[in-house]
Write a protein that binds this DNA or RNA. Structure first.
Lengths: 163, 163
DNA sequence: TTGGAAAGTCAACAAGGCTGACGTAAATTG
DNA sequence: CAATTTACGTCAGCCTTGTTGACTTTCCAA
């Protein structure tokens, strides 16, 4: 019997998996390239982008919630949050129900930067979707979701779904 | 005329694009999680993993080639290569044709670590492919490739393709 | 033979992770 | 009501991995 198999959709060689791994690596670089350029103009980094993104996504979110989504220490997050608050991009309000909590909101200035970053990233994503074709989008999302750690998948699915 | 449209494969709302962006973010974290854990055991970081991966992928590659693929400064790369060479994971041989060049090869020890890292990452990728189904894999790869910067896509396609 | 490419090295710096320790206010629990 | 826990902020110090700039050595090629 011949053990060799034809490349197929079902059987994936280590080499084919490796191409997927490399695709993920190179694509992520493209994914972050446009925001990185914008952030540099303002003297911010990816950490600031992540904070802006998730505060925009969940207005009024507290620090603990952000820590869980971002998986960083509070010291790391605090450094970023502090500069965003000082620079007037984020508004930190004492919680109404629980006064220990701080509820985070984007100011107009913060919304403006978030919008600039988001539009750049959406443009890249839109172009990639267009080039790959509509059927590809489903597969893309399915594989990405399957690749997440369960905890992160939970967070991902908790964020409001537009579908 | 009604401007509202039904969600479809062809028309993507900003919200749907945002979900794609978040999927990319969370998935990349899963993608790097297993190697990160392994690297920590040995006191290495992602930079070491990247060097090991691409030296394994293109045995005998020189520094300039690695710099182009990794898009870092030679000072950054050098620091990583130096430790890998000192630790006996990488063998740096003076070029035969051009003696200015250094051709990089993995030692047995280097191959062992690379294999451990690669297998962990392939396992994650294999599981994601299995969960998402065979049709999804095509789309996944197509979107990722479309998302790359042209320079990186060139590098990606230059690496030996198993298909 | 000389200019420039390739490689390596030193120094200094920054972003953004981390740990550990400590303080304060507010909520919760016994 | 007292004690404990929770949420948050902050200080100090460390690490990895990126950066720029300057400088040297080697050595190929015009």
């Amino acid at each position: 019997m011949d053990d060799r198999r034809e490349p197929s959709l079902l059987f994936l060689t280590d080499e084919q998996l490796k191409k997927g791994i490399e695709a993920m690596y190179f694509a992520y670089r493209g994914f972050t390239a446009d925001p990185d350029r914008i952030l540099e103009k303002y003297g911010y980094g990816r950490a600031h982008h992540r904070a802006l993104h998730f505060i925009h996504r969940t207005p009024g979110t507290n620090v603990n919630n952000l820590l869980a989504i971002l998986s960083v220490t509070k010291q790391s997050l605090n450094r970023v949050l502090r500069t965003l608050i000082e620079d007037g991009l984020v508004d930190s309000r004492v919680g109404t129900r629980d006064k220990r909590e701080r509820n985070m909101y984007l100011t107009e200035k913060g919304q403006a930067l978030e919008a600039e970053l988001a539009e750049a990233q959406r443009a890249r994503m839109r172009a990639a979707y267009r080039d790959a074709g509509p059927e590809a989008v489903q597969g893309f999302r399915q594989v990405l979701e399957a690749m997440m750690d369960p905890d992160m998948r939970r967070h991902f699915n908790t964020l409001k779904d537009p579908d």
